[in-house]
């Protein structure tokens, strides 16, 4: 099975071609350009340089969130746009889960964190065990402090990955001696991880949707507003 996977959910952008488990090619950029300008050339070059016709691709995978608002929309709409006329299946992968699939060679906990600003992160925890990835929590948005309290319950190595990893490491490393900031080359989500996770998350082009997580802070605001509206109605 040939899988083309893309990620545009944060500042890096990547595209990978995985053929029956083999990584045939991958492009990764982490520069200050808009993904809407880089993603299509990356996909195009990847297909050309690997000598692949787009019709040969069996599955188109995308990190559908969480992530930056614009980034998530660029990735999802690109894959939607490619697959709809080709009538090919998509796969909607969690950005956080794709990070765990980039490093299942080790044992321990992968703590995937993306900076959601305002001292909040998008996070999920995964257990790595002999090359397997087991999800421990849902994708959620929580404060850096709340996450720290949770991590205190885990023994063994905790690998911090994602664009919030450095931020969390600075906060946690004095208190938790088992947190590890993984090196740059595996710290961010790569489309390879998206491709590896893809087969279990297949959906149709029409079903593919951006996955946004609401911050607890936003939930509170909404509640307060609904409460206010109720009171006004009375």
């Amino acid at each position: 099975m040939k899988i083309l996977a893309v990620d545009t959910t944060a500042s890096p952008v990547s595209a990978a071609l995985v053929d029956d488990g083999k990584l045939s090619g991958e492009f990764f950029l982490n520069i200050k350009t808009t993904h809407s300008q880089t993603l299509m050339p990356l996909i195009d070059t990847l297909l050309k340089t690997t000598g692949t016709d787009i019709h040969e691709i069996d599955l188109f995978a995308v990190n559908a969130g969480p992530g930056s608002f614009t980034g998530v929309r660029i990735g999802v709409s690109t894959i939607k746009g490619i697959t709809m006329p080709l009538d090919k299946p998509c796969a909607s992968v969690s950005t956080l889960e794709s990070m765990a699939y980039c490093m299942p060679y080790s044992d321990g906990i992968v703590c995937a964190v993306m900076d959601a600003r305002c001292s909040q992160v998008y996070n999920a925890l995964f257990m790595l065990d002999g090359g397997k990835v087991d999800r421990l929590t849902e994708d959620r948005a929580l404060s850096i402090n709340e996450l720290q309290k949770e991590l205190e319950h885990y023994d063994g190595s905790i690998y911090l990955v994602g664009d919030g990893a450095e931020l969390c490491f600075k906060e946690y490393s004095d208190i938790l001696d088992n947190v590890i900031l993984v090196p740059e080359n595996i710290r961010y989500q790569h489309a390879y991880g998206t491709a590896v996770a893809a087969e279990q998350y297949q959906c149709s082009s029409a079903e593919l949707q951006p996955l946004y997580l609401r911050l607890p802070q936003a939930e509170r605001e909404l509640k307060a507003r609904l409460q206010q509206r109720k009171e006004n109605e009375k």
Binding site: K32, S68, F69, R214, L215, A218
Partner: peptide
């Protein structure tokens, strides 16, 4: 714009440092 959700969906955070 009156909430975090509103702000997020303007893409505000994507403009930072650019």
């Amino acid at each position: 714009i009156t909430s975090y959700d509103d702000l997020y969906s303007t893409g505000f955070f994507d403009y930072e440092n650019n």
